[in-house]
Design a protein around this nucleic acid. Sequence first.
RNA 1: UGUCCUGUGGUGUAACUGGUAACACGUCUGACUCUGGAUCAGAAGAGUCCAGGUUCGAGCCCUGGCAGGACAACCA
Length: 566
Amino acid sequence: MAEKHLNEKDPPGKNNFIHLQIEKDIAEGRNQGRVHTRFPPEPNGYLHIGHAKSICLNFGTAEKYGGKCNLRFDDTNPSKEETEYVESIQEDVRWLGFDWGDRLFYASDYFDKLFEFAIRLIKNGKAYVDDQDAETISSQKGTPTRPGFESPHRNRSIDENLDLFLKMKEGAFSEGERVLRAKIDMASPNMHMRDPIIYRIMKSPHHRTGDKWCIYPMYDFAHGQCDYWEGITHSICTLEFEVHRPLYDWFIDQLQETGYRPRQIEFARLNLSYTVMSKRKLMELVKDGHVNGWDDPRMPTISALRRRGYTPQAIRNFAEKIGVTKVDGMIDVLLLEHSVREHLNKTAQRVMGVLNPLKVVITNYPEGQEEEMDAVNNPEDENMGMRKVPFSRELYIERDDFMEDPPRKFFRLAPGREVRLRYAYFITCVNVVKDENGRVTELHCTYDPASKGGNSPDGRKVKATLHWVSVKHAVKAEVRLYDRLFTDEDPLGHKDVDFKEFMNPDSLKVLPECYIEPFVKGAKPLSHFQFERLGYFNIDPDSTGGKLVFNRTVRLRDTWAKQQKR
RNA sequence: UGUCCUGUGGUGUAACUGGUAACACGUCUGACUCUGGAUCAGAAGAGUCCAGGUUCGAGCCCUGGCAGGACAACCA
């Protein structure tokens, strides 16, 4: 029964279609059964959650089959690429928990080889220099439904081509004056096979090769060749490169000398509801100041998710859950949020914090008295132990936890009602103090000394347990609440409306005066906490010695809020 | 008037050489609880884009449609 599966560790259905293909390749002894993948970002922006899917797929696949995965920067366009991005990308991949060992490469490492290969193509009559400008070339290319026609320079002699190409390299021409094209088929039904441009003149300095080159290979002329030279067996990329595959294979045909041959496999990129996932659009949000940088916690970039309080584990679990297919769908952000909650629930230190403080005075609690209450650090993990929480006569509770005139299903504090203060005492609201506008400013309550720790010896039950912070001991903090950046599920899905029209004006709410229990003092930036009953929060790097800043990663599930909505 | 790809509950994924649709998220009940969290138990929700065909039997195979997406950057 189980031997029907190549990999018995996995139940049927656990494998995605790429793994199925790989297992077939291994079974057939293709490439000596090796599995070698690569993650090939262009260093022209920050990585986002969609890249995380690809990173997990590429590195995860290599891990699964005992193979390797290279990190390779696809830096063939010096006008867009920068070292800043090279660094952030490495940081993000490492943070996600993957390791490329000593296999860090750049397409620019291969510029010499690529140039030699181009020369070889020219000598074989498979490439030629075209003198026409971009517009002319494009007009000759035809359309997807109509064939193109040949350039007048298509059949010049090999010697002339060699001479011109060398001159291109030496800088004899200006940008756009000449290009090198592969000589394939101007009538091909596949646009990419209609004599694609493989080298163009660009006089911008390259972030790694400086001004050594003034001609640069195009993506199609670099990618597959780099794969080949690195011994990549499975070149996994997104669906839009599907139509490029015949060209990928054409170049490999020119290169292949042994039985070894890389294979390109395409999968659907990640689309997340209520977010945009294009580097260009994200760049626009950053450049136009709609967000505060690439790592603004509302962004879908990996650096933003990190700052927001997501964990690598949560992101990897998410990538596992969404699977890998060729169906171009849209994943609900709720699944991403579920993934963090799931992980943080198991790992986050619990703490009490009050976001919208309402002062409570325990009128029968001795003035000046203080106690330390025992609190559990994480009910999901006993090993995390206990802590002490200071209690005193004056406390803050959440303003939302009190209603003067509560509806039927509201179990929290109300005049005359008794509730529990978590890990502390039962209290009963006896008096509501208001200002001249009728706004509640303070609550007077009494406590039951016998209920210390949170239970009454007479077995009396209360419906609600509230979180609280002692006024005297509280740490004041700024808390930043985030909501989705867009109000529309598919901001890019409207033809005549710019996606920025759907930006959520309430995506960031800053609460300058929140009170957290003293336990958080001295915690390091990015530390994760659960503020009980509220959600998961982490310390923002904006925090200074004197001022703590928290980000809300995600709320807790809240069935009360859900009921209210109905 | 092209080429290529894709169509399974609301969403995502699964169903091995055809064997009678499974899992997760979400939704809704209920139990439990010192977090209206977590946990546990349960429910609703698709008959697999459509139409034919092959077969004892089709989500899987065949034929023909339909729908959606990608491709016309000297971007990747």
